[in-house]
Design a protein around this nucleic acid. Sequence first.
RNA 1: GCCCCGUUCGUCUAGCGGCCUAGGACGCUGGCUUCUCAUGCCAGUAGCACGGGUUCAAAUCCCGUACGGGGUGCCA
Length: 457
Amino acid sequence: MRFSPAPTGYLHVGGARSALFNWMYARHTGGVFVLRVEDTDTDRSSPELTEAILDSLRWLGIDWDEEYRQSDRFDRYRRFADDLLAAGQAYRCDCTRPAIEARAAARGDAPGVGYDRFCRDRDVRPGDGVVVRFRVPDHGVTGWDDVIRGRVEFDNAVLEDFIIVRSNGVPMFHLANAYDDVDMGITHVIRGEDLVNTTPRVLLLRSALGHPDPPVYAHLPLIVNEKRQKLSKRRDDVAVGDYRSRGFLPEAMRNYLLTLGWGPPDGEEIGPIEHFIELFELENINNSPAFFDVKKLEHFNREHLRFLGPEEFIERSAHAVPSDIPEDLYGRMAAYVQERLVRIDRDEIDSLLGWIVRAAPEPDPNDWKKVMRRPEVPEVLELVAERLAGVPWTPAALEEAVLGAGADLGAKSQLPVRMAVTGARTGIPLFEPMAELDRAEVLARLSAAQHRLAGEA
RNA sequence: GCCCCGUUCGUCUAGCGGCCUAGGACGCUGGCUUCUCAUGCCAGUAGCACGGGUUCAAAUCCCGUACGGGGUGCCA
């Protein structure tokens, strides 16, 4: 199996899913997984982009057994093209795009109908603006049995004589792709459905190489946006690296991606990758496009976040902890954070813990009103402050003082105190972190809230 | 235009002729647990695109229609 990205952009979720399925199937079958960088588009490919793609794959935990760059192998492809030329299976062509379109227009064909085989027998000599085209058979069909789609066939008559070597001498992707799949002994080709239309070209080239038997093809359903269109790097938010920086766990990303187009037969969709590798079969991949749903990804992320052991969670989230939160404090609060986090995100962590080391944030006006503008609140705050002044400064004693005061007054006391001390109506359990603050600080915050209430009355 | 492909709850999926008055998951709604939130547990919500066949029996097989998508580059 192989994953063969073109380094003309960052790795996006569609590519990642293709890589993942190839990798899973290789590991499932005990096969070899090849990473082949298809950098034949010399204008748009770059080593930086290649490195970024490899980096994203490594992050996802996808490893490979062999690695190639097609740019290192141009001479092989050219030799192949020369053989084709010598055998009359390919020919040179000096038609420009405008010339091709002008002839189409003259015939009354719609634009985009393709090349009309004009140069097939013109015996064009090598030179500027000359490409090499493959001579597609006039008759017959080219097809294969797709594991996912069943039999797919194209009439050779509708296939155009496609270019295999550009005018600058650089081979086109079909040529390199067909050559390498044979050369590297690729037996299974698992890739996006957007590539089905190029498959007959590759098949024709393989035959020319003396390998008429197709590999096993599995064309995956596309991953689409909310408008059910193929994801585009330009308009959709799809770079794997972005999800990484937004605080998604690689194992969650990987786990979610594998549910797009495939359902684990045992119905357990969240779990360790080894389990899915064991169950993974090409035959079970479905054939309709899947929408990439960030909401569900977030759910997977929450779950995987909770699978982490306490130590591991601290280690893996440390980089996103605001710098003014001391390590030991974070260690004590981490379990509370772990249970509430959606992503490993600095803002999320800060909103949970920031109030312990800094002044509480300005409360949301609606929340403030809802919690504090109840008639009993001033009285509750008063009594809580009074009891807190003399109590031992431990979580248990704080809890007893706050809840006890409420009980004695027949009122809810936890929420107003939380609001006064943390600046929010929701958050981690109150008394443990509250005990981390100085008594004076807590009393000051209570007093500030009391004054504010008095001012509003 | 031409070629190729697809269509099960809002979303991801199970289903590969009878176990389906269509199962699970996310989301959403309600309830219980709880110092708030979150978790956990329980319940609810909502779907086989349409029309013809084949068959004793069709979400499952065949044909057509509609809708959607992909390709149609000296990109991959």
